[in-house]
Write a protein that binds this DNA or RNA. Structure first.
Lengths: 249, 249
DNA sequence: AGCGTTTAATTGCATATGCAATTAGAGAGG
DNA sequence: CCTCTCTAATTGCATATGCAATTAAACGCT
């Protein structure tokens, strides 16, 4: 933990002290100032830096740990946690993991790739005012030789320039992005659509068959990162989640 | 708070004291022993009852408040919170609220009702070994005179006997159940299906059109409460949610 | 170098204390 | 009866203290 890192913790004077500390550290993590794996200063260091008692600092850190943002171990200290790769039904998830979790062998095919200026539909997708450079991919994911899901993806090169050098022949774009980009906000939408003739052929279903369409857009600090449409054959897939009255179980 | 209520708080000796207290009270709430609105004993009373310091009791209660299970107010005390009626995308939700939230007028039609022994498909739906008494309903929900969603529902009479006396002509079964039943666990599944001829006619779409099918099963303490299938015309509906890397935003 | 032992850094937990903020309800006064 | 004031019950917050548990790293021994 360098001096610059601990100096980044700044209180805003609003609300209870423990909550100021909690929010200060939370914001450093959420804004990527302290990326996953970063060592959080030990309690007594924060104590001195912030002029608070150890118990107050402790309270803030315990709460952050409960929220999953940090991991704490006695003696080793506190580090920024890695965001869980996949949550429940609708969070960011890895398609290879999803397929392997079902007990199938995973494979992928890059059907098409176009780099360059985004076309009009992509511009409106991200609600941009102008055309920008993107990578535009179509990928088919297979489970035991059966088409599993058809992915159409756009990656915003201004925020993820490294995407231009990656060919995505072994790692799908979703997984690659989890390792090579940061995101702070995402939006999902689920709907049901009929497969077009082209889609139906790729997914080995009939034209017009119902499909589950998952659309996801991701931003980092307000800048677009990626957008994806995942088309699942309706007959083969369902998303399941379990809940209790007060939230996820 | 009667003596019997405070005596219900029992520690199990496992793990930290504050967490024993937290779990003891949480379980009383989740098991319906302390229904929503019940006064939780004040910190002093729990202190004496449990032989813990006030700060330790406080810590447990603050955490429960953060989890949304209780509501605390100075001087007034602590009461068991009402479970939120609807969460995000996939939690239990009220269809009238959903429709009105979109700015439409809500109406419902009970298409069919059958009370009595559950048919075989219902038995397997709940994974029961035998036929049981149920209410079986088909309800169509309207938004501004346009079919919004088709609901098929089964209510388990052994756990919700009052359902036999309710005609569901003004309040939809989902909303009625939120007020007249307890549930401790639910399972959702989302898939895409093609509308059958009958469904298509009711929803004013074409046969074979893609629909979003939401299936939900609900239990209380392991006993089935209700199961429902909600069929949304695919072209008209999408479920949207927003997330950050560490969870819902 | 390799291996066991000790040390000490760090978090986890519980208690005690004191004061502040909120406000339901009691009491005073009309 | 009504209204205002005051009291006190209850939670909220912060600090100080002490000890326990974990374990990385230093140390010492062969």
């Amino acid at each position: 933990m360098s001096a610059s890192q601990i100096d980044a913790v700044a209180l805003d004077g609003v609300g209870p002290l423990y909550d100021q500390i909690r929010r200060a550290i939370r914001d450093l993590i959420l804004n990527g100032v302290w990326p996953p794996g970063t060592a959080v200063p030990p309690e007594h260091a924060l104590m001195e830096r912030l002029g608070a008692s150890r118990m107050t600092v402790h309270r803030a850190l315990v709460q952050l740990a409960r929220e999953g943002l940090i991991t704490r171990r006695r003696r080793s200290g506190t580090i920024v946690a890695s965001p869980p790769a996949s949550h429940a039904m609708l969070d960011i998830l890895s398609i290879p993991e999803e397929v392997r979790g079902l007990g199938h062998a995973y494979a992928l095919t890059v059907l098409q790739r176009r780099d360059g200026r985004a076309q009009r539909p992509v511009v409106s997708l991200f609600e941009l005012g102008r055309a920008v450079d993107v990578v535009h991919l179509s990928v088919l994911h297979w489970a035991d030789g059966v088409p599993h899901v058809l992915e159409e993806r756009v990656i915003h090169l201004a925020t993820v320039p490294a995407a231009a050098q990656e060919d995505f022949s072994t790692i799908p774009p979703g997984d690659w992005l989890l390792q090579n980009s940061l995101w702070s906000q995402a939006e999902h939408a689920i709907s049901a659509v009929a497969a077009t003739a082209e889609q139906a052929e790729l997914l080995a279903i009939a034209e017009g068959d119902p499909c589950l369409l998952v659309e996801r857009r991701t931003w980092n600090q307000g800048e677009p990162v990626t957008a994806v449409r995942l088309l699942y054959p309706g007959g083969r897939h369902r998303f399941v989640g379990r809940f209790g009255p007060y939230g996820k179980v």
